[in-house]
């Protein structure tokens, strides 16, 4: 295992009873900004819990910032700042006390933690609210407060769980700008769990897609986006079922569009477009339109995580909203 990598897992597996949360996950992430994407139950939270040593994996090895965390002997948590998705706010504390508490729990001396708390609250834009009690903070301010609590000890790696979750557009923009500024000016690494694809595009270079406990994709965000080039939208009449089956026989992936007569086809390796017409003719169908399918990051994600698992209405609604389905 490479000691200079951000995160390295080998054959990492974990299960809760009969439920396999992670299955033989092999990852090697280089320092930088990485997004962790996946549906609910994909294994993201389990992976984060393992990284934070909240649970011990049933199998496999994990190194984070060069430290083996399964052995638990290395104080790597001090180099990590974690911002949870939930609101773990200590009742009756004020803003600066909460951040200072986080610093002390990371190991800072009380005085040092208090001083640093004021400094970091100033940075995240909460200097005027720092003496307020936590129950007076809005959702947006709580998100920034949690970020301050993760940053207080100046960690090398930030693990952020849904940093823009629950924020209105203005709050989300503020948080993203803050993170962009932070990552650009400090060179810290980021591992971010999110459901918002635009956050990924704004903040991350690399993306890991988990699905049912397995890694479906790991690579640059740009590569994920470029995958759309192998996907076509077809309009056809006649024997549509036979045509779809003929396309499927070639090894490609066929999806039915919501509109009758529309097919989406992900072509197999070394495909010639003339094959569309040959197959249509042989199966009794007539192609009325053929074009490259427009697809954004979210649609690529759905495709990689078997969007057909979703209920039909949900799939069609969400994909249509993001430009996958077009009336043909």
């Amino acid at each position: 295992m490479d000691s200079t990598s951000l995160l390295e897992t080998v054959d990492l597996s974990h299960s809760f009873g009969d439920v396999h949360a992670l299955r033989q996950v092999d990852l090697s992430l280089v320092p930088g900004n990485v997004a962790l994407l996946g549906n609910n139950g994909a294994g993201k939270s389990t992976l984060i819990k393992i990284l934070l040593s909240l649970i011990q994996p049933k199998q496999g090895q994990v190194r984070i910032l060069g430290h083996d965390i399964v052995s638990g002997r290395n104080p790597v948590w001090r180099r990590i700042g974690y911002m949870p998705e939930t609101r773990p706010l200590v009742p009756l504390l004020k803003g600066y006390e909460y951040v200072a508490l986080s610093g002390e729990l990371y190991g800072m001396a009380a005085k040092s933690a208090r001083r640093r708390a004021h400094e970091i609250l100033n940075y995240v834009g909460l200097e005027e609210l720092r003496y307020r009690k936590l129950d007076e903070y809005s959702t947006g301010n709580v998100q920034r407060l949690k970020l301050a609590a993760a940053l207080v000890h100046d960690p090398e790696l930030l693990i952020l769980d849904e940093p823009t979750g629950g924020l209105d557009p203005t709050g989300r923009t503020r948080m993203l700008r803050l993170l962009q500024d932070l990552l650009r000016s400090t060179g810290k690494s980021l591992l971010m769990c999110t459901h918002l694809f635009s956050d990924v595009e704004d903040l991350c270079q690399d993306v890991v897609i988990l699905h049912q406990g397995r890694v479906r994709f790991y690579g640059p965000v740009s590569e994920l986006r470029n995958r759309v080039s192998d996907r076509y939208q077809l309009g056809a009449t006649g024997e549509l079922d036979a045509f779809a089956e003929a396309l499927r026989q070639t090894g490609g992936q066929v999806e039915r569009g919501k509109t009758n007569g529309t097919l989406y086809f992900t072509v197999p390796h070394s495909w010639r477009n003339a094959r569309f017409f040959e197959l249509a003719e042989s199966s009794g169908a007539v192609i009325t339109s053929l074009k490259m399918a427009e697809e954004d990051l979210q649609a690529s994600f759905f495709r990689l995580t078997d969007a057909e698992d979703l209920p039909a209405e949900e799939t069609s609604t969400s994909q249509r909203a993001h430009g996958v389905f077009h009336a043909g």
Binding site: P75, R78, L101, E104, L105, Y106, G107, M108, A109, A110, S112, R116, E119, N122, Y123, G125, E127, V152, H153, D154, T173, R174, R177, L178, D181, L182, S185, T186
Partner: peptide
């Protein structure tokens, strides 16, 4: 504007010694 806020208050690193974990008992 918020962008001005970020520009004004630049991030500063922190360098200091972290105490042994046993101190967290006192903190809690």
């Amino acid at each position: 504007g918020f962008s001005m806020l970020v520009d004004r208050a630049l991030y500063h690193g922190w360098e200091g010694r972290l105490r042994p974990r046993i101190w967290t008992v006192v903190t809690l």
